[in-house]
Simulated scan of single mutants.
Amino acid sequence: MQTDLYGVLTEERRALLSGDFDKLEPFAAAKEAFLTTLERQPDARIHALLLQNARLIEAARSGVRQAREQIAEIRNFGRSLGTYNAEGQREKTGQKAELGRF
């Protein structure tokens, strides 16, 4: 782990960009420790990295959430028939759909 906040943020960014999410947990504690010891506001370089990493973290969370939804849809495929109404809203019939070749 890096000994300065800029180094921690840079490593966190690398982990986020490479999708190595298993390495992210220690960064939160390291950032908190550095930020609680700061006697002044972070400089512009640190502030920019904090904002960039926050956006990357949110994008990763959103991507994981969407992937989970897609996996759930795949697992539930064929259990119910989903259609769209005239307003474009998805509706489920609640009946098991039978799929086959026509």
Rank of each mutant, 00 (worst) to 15 (best):
L24Y: 01
A15Y: 01
Q70I: 08
F102A: 12
L50V: 09
E39T: 15
R68V: 02
L16F: 06
Q2I: 02
E69N: 14
A33I: 02
G19E: 00
G94R: 14
R45P: 02
E12N: 01
R61D: 00
P26I: 07
E69K: 07
Q41I: 11
K23M: 11
R101W: 13
F102T: 14
P42I: 07
F102C: 02
K31M: 03
G7V: 05
Q52F: 08
L51V: 14
A54L: 14
Q41K: 15
A72P: 05
A30T: 03
E91Y: 07
T36D: 09
T83W: 11
F77H: 15
E91T: 10
R45L: 03
A59H: 06
K92T: 15
L9C: 04
D22C: 06
Q52L: 13
Q2N: 07
L5M: 11
G88Y: 05
R68G: 09
E58F: 07
N85E: 08
R79P: 03
T37L: 07
G78M: 08
L38H: 09
T10K: 02
Q95G: 01
A30V: 06
A33M: 07
I57K: 00
M1P: 13
L9Y: 04
R14L: 10
S18P: 03
L56S: 02
R13W: 02
N53M: 07
K31I: 03
A54S: 14
A54W: 10
R45E: 13
E11N: 05
A44T: 14
I71L: 11
A54R: 15
T93A: 04
A28K: 03
R61G: 00
I74Y: 13
Y84E: 09
E98T: 15
P26A: 05
P42T: 06
N76W: 08
V8K: 00
Y84P: 01
L35M: 14
A29K: 15
T83V: 15
G82M: 11
L24K: 01
P42N: 11
